[in-house]
Amino acid sequence: MARFIVEVMLKPEILDSQGQAVARALPRLGFEGVTQVRQGKRFEIEVEGPADEAATERVRKMAETLLANPVIETFELRAE
């Protein structure tokens, strides 16, 4: 069994209002010095078979098709 991690983030130019809200909340809790927070999504995907190139390609396809919206998001993929 192979396990992949896909992390999806909003593109830097897309306003991340949720990340901003988190950044604004942190100083109120005493966490000073936070200059930016960006919020994203992490997917853990398990597939049958080895974590070879073909499996990686399939997970990449999943990320492009469904997990991320390439209009507003980018993703990073790695085997674990």
Partner: peptide, 17 residues
């Protein structure tokens, strides 16, 4: 429609959350 790419762009969380 945006997710289907029949229309360009995307709709994200309201700025005021």
């Amino acid at each position: 429609l945006c997710e289907s790419h029949l229309l360009p762009g995307a709709l994200t969380r309201n700025v005021g959350l």
